[in-house]
Every structure is written in C-alpha cells, then in structure tokens.
C-alpha cells in the first residue's frame, strides 16, 4: 500500500516539477508571455481600427472575442513542447520522468497560460471595445473558465504532435482548428447567450457539451501521449 502511495506521490511530484520548470523558464525568458500579450494587443487594435468607431452588434462582438483568443492561443500555447525540441532537452525529460507526468505538467502549464491569456483578452476587450456588453455574468464567467480549460487541453496534445514535425508554426493552427471547432462553436453560442441576457439555465446544454469535450480530450490525450512522446 505504502509502495503504491509513494509511486502516486512521486508521479504528482514529477508532474509539478515539470510544471515548475516550465514556469520558471517562462519567467526568465518571458517568451510566450510577451508573444501572447503583444498578439492580443495587436489583434484588439486591428479590430478597433476596422470597426472605425462604428458599433457592431453584441452577437458579432461575442464571436470576435473568441477569434482573438483562438489565434492568440495558436501563437503562444505551442511553445511547451517545441521548446523541449529546440533546446534538445526532450530526451533527458523522457529518461527522467514518466510520460504521464510530463503530459500533466505541460497541461498544467498550458492551463495557467491559457487562463492568463483569456483573462487578459477579456479585460482588454471589455475596456476598449464599445458595445460589448454581458448581461448574464454567470454564463459568461463559466463559459470563459470552461473555454480556456478546453482550449488548453486540446492545444497541449496538438503541441506535442507538432513538436515532432518539420513545419511547426504553420501546422499548429491547421491541426488545431478542426479539433477545436466543436469547442469554439459552443463557447461562441454561450457567449452570445450571455450577451443577450439569457437566464443561466438556458446555457446548461452548452456547458454539458463543454464539460464532456474537456473530459474526452483529456482522457484521449493521456491515452495517446505515450505514443507521441516516446521515440
């Protein structure tokens, strides 16, 4: 019993260590963070320019919010695994850490990054885009939370796939988009509901889809990660 416990404890410690390693190296280089911040600022200012002072309907703006989040995630969340390939540290990590723990650590890191990204986008969006109103705050908050979790979950496994391919940067959105589409369509619907001021119960169906999406993607990713990661 104690042996099994210690295995589990070691696994969790390894996952946390991977997460902390990525977190520290991110704080030192600020590569992903600065890219994400600049990306969000650029995209929002382009939206502002293209609107040119004219308002758009809250429904359109609700969809645009997720356009910004999707493309920002595409620019920043692939770093986790590409980084290991570029620095040549992947092999050591493979030897030192069980692959499940590596995936959990990377997922945690992407979750943190994704949460920061959505938070930043939402704050900037709410500050600068006129006409973006949220009438049902509860729907909006749950959608943002579930949406960023789902986004991070799907983009982590795709990042692991493209880290092994030749054309990393361009391939990432190509591979991610079809996988993320169910998520994006659902969050856009839910955000529209929030903008329209629908009661919380009306978005229950969307939340069920989001939760099952997250569960399915994380389960399948943990099952398949071994094949991608091990040489």
């Amino acid at each position: 019993m104690s042996a099994r416990e210690s295995v589990a404890a070691r696994w969790i410690r390894a996952a946390l260590a991977v997460f902390l390693k990525d977190w520290r190296s991110e704080l030192r280089t600020r590569y992903a963070m600065s890219a994400l911040v600049m990306f969000v600022v650029t995209t929002i200012s382009i939206i502002l320019f293209s609107l040119g002072g004219e308002g758009a309907s809250p429904e359109v703006l609700a969809g645009m919010l997720w356009v910004v989040i999707f493309f920002a995630a595409m620019s920043g969340l692939s770093r986790t695994f590409v980084m290991e390939e570029e620095r040549g540290t992947g092999m050591t990590l493979q030897l030192m850490t069980p692959s499940g723990a590596v995936f959990a650590g990377k997922l945690l890191f992407n979750l943190a990054l994704g949460a920061g990204l959505t938070l930043l986008t939402v704050v900037l969006y709410a500050l600068f885009i006129n006409g973006f109103v949220v009438r049902t705050l509860s729907i909006f908050l749950v959608t943002i939370a579930l949406g960023s979790i789902g986004l991070a979950a799907a983009s982590t496994i795709i990042a692991a796939i493209i880290a092994r391919a030749n054309t990393k940067g361009t391939l990432y959105p190509v591979l991610s988009f079809p996988i993320l589409l169910p998520l994006l369509m659902t969050v856009i619907n839910a955000t529209r509901l929030a903008a329209d001021g629908a009661p919380f119960s009306e978005a229950a169906g969307e939340f069920q889809v989001l939760i099952s999406y997250i569960v399915v993607v994380i389960t399948v990713s943990t099952m398949l990660f071994d094949y991608i990661w091990k040489d």
């Binding site: 796939i161 030749n166 054309t167 391939l171 591979l175 398949l224 991608i228």
Partner: peptide, 27 residues
C-alpha cells in the same frame, strides 16, 4: 499536411494515427 510535414516514416505513421484518433473522438 501533418503527414507531409514528418519525414521519418515511423514517426509520421504514429503521429497521423494519433491525430486521426483525436479527430475521431471530437468530430
């Protein structure tokens, strides 16, 4: 596009299998 981006045969086979499974569960 994934298949054309990976040159090593085994790696290409593994990655594209993983991708098709991933797509099959979400689609």
């Amino acid at each position: 596009s994934l298949r054309s981006a990976v040159e090593v045969e085994e790696k290409r086979a593994t990655l594209s299998s993983v991708y098709s499974i991933l797509a099959a569960v979400t689609v």
